[in-house]
Amino acid sequence: MSTVTSEVLAIRTGDDVVRVRQGVRTAASKAGLSLVDQTKIITAASELARNTLDYGGGGTARIELVQEPMRRGVRIIFEDQGPGIPDVEQALSDGFTTGRGLGLGLGGSKRLCNEFRIETEAGKGTRVTIARWR
């Protein structure tokens, strides 16, 4: 596995969410994803960046263009040092929310990606890794 390019963006304000979207768009088009797939991964990234901001108290997004022998794609890793997610399974179910959203962020994002992983620890923070392959 090799990462072709990688960039880390800070997520501290609402404008940063837009910047993450733009960064993912660039990487996704470089990876040669179809228009629909690009739209899906950008939308998922937008949801997760907002989660990082709203629930994690801000953090970072690392956007990677990944080239493997059999596939090419985009991977994004969101990290925060927030309170963590107490019940991941519950958080993934549609309609569950502790905030002001529709409760579609996590579960919805998962459906938009080929790969989706959450690592979280109470009081330490959360890391969400998503990827979409060509």
């Binding site: 690009q38 739209t39 939308t43 579960g107 459906r111």
Partner: peptide, 14 residues
């Protein structure tokens, strides 16, 4: 609304 956006929104559950 663009097709790709519509597909994504539906997939998102909206």
């Amino acid at each position: 609304m663009r097709p790709a956006v519509a597909i994504t929104l539906v997939e998102l559950g909206l």
